[in-house]
Amino acid sequence: DEDELTGILKKLSLEKYQPIFEEQEVDMEAFLTLTDGDLKELGIKTDGSRQQILAAISELNAG
């Protein structure tokens, strides 16, 4: 699971946030449920980064 998540972050060039997800024990299943508020709480402060992550999440959820 973590590897898939790392792959997604790398694709977005946001792998610098990978340790945050690891630290908070966010797995792929949890990742797919994250909201903008969750990402802010995790410490992802950049709007653009959150938008990219949320776009990836909705794409993955759309299947």
Rank of each mutant, 00 (worst) to 15 (best):
D27R: 08
K16L: 05
L9N: 00
F31M: 06
R50A: 04
D1K: 15
Q52A: 13
K40D: 11
A30D: 07
I20K: 11
E15L: 09
N61T: 13
I44M: 07
I8G: 03
Y17D: 06
L34Q: 06
G43N: 06
Y17M: 14
G37C: 07
D3F: 15
E25G: 13
E15M: 10
K16F: 06
A55E: 14
Q51E: 10
V26F: 09
L12G: 00
I20R: 12
P19G: 10
K45M: 14
I57V: 08
E25I: 07
Q51M: 08
M28P: 09
D1Q: 13
Q51I: 05
A30P: 01
T35Y: 01
K11E: 05
G63N: 07
E23N: 09
L54T: 06
N61F: 01
R50N: 02
S58E: 14
S49C: 15
E29G: 09
I44Q: 02
G63H: 08
L14K: 00
K45T: 13
E25D: 09
E25Q: 08
E41A: 12
A55D: 12
N61Q: 10
E22A: 10
I44G: 02
F31L: 06
K16I: 05
L5N: 00
G63M: 06
L9C: 01
L60E: 10
D38S: 08
I53Y: 00
T33G: 12
K16S: 11
G48T: 15
E22I: 00
A62C: 13
E23T: 08
D3L: 15
D1V: 12
I53P: 04
K40R: 12
I53K: 02
D47S: 10
L5G: 00
E25Y: 07
E2T: 15
K11D: 09
D47W: 06
E59P: 02
G37A: 13
Q51L: 07
A56V: 10
T46S: 14
T35G: 08
G7P: 10
I8V: 12
L9V: 01
E59I: 03
L12C: 13
E23M: 06
L60Y: 14
K10N: 04
E22W: 01
E2W: 15
Y17K: 04
E59R: 11
E22V: 07
F31G: 04
G63I: 09
E29M: 06
K11V: 02
E2G: 09
R50E: 03
K11L: 05
I8C: 13
Y17F: 12
I57W: 01
E23R: 12
D3W: 11
E25R: 09
K10M: 05
K10C: 00
I57F: 01
E22S: 12
T35F: 01
K11W: 05
E25P: 02
G37I: 10
L54N: 08
E22K: 11
G37Q: 12
P19H: 14
I8D: 03
D47C: 10
E2Q: 15
L14C: 02
G7F: 13
Y17Q: 06
L5W: 04
L12A: 04
K45H: 11
G63A: 13
E15S: 09
L32H: 07
K11M: 08
E29Y: 05
D27S: 11
L54V: 07
S58T: 12
E25C: 11
V26T: 04
L9S: 01
D38K: 09
L34I: 02
Q18W: 06
T46Q: 08
D27F: 00
I8P: 00
G43S: 04
D27Q: 04
Q24T: 07
Q51F: 03
P19C: 07
I44E: 02
G43L: 02
D38I: 00
T33Y: 04
E59Q: 11
V26S: 02
T35R: 12
A30T: 10
D3K: 15
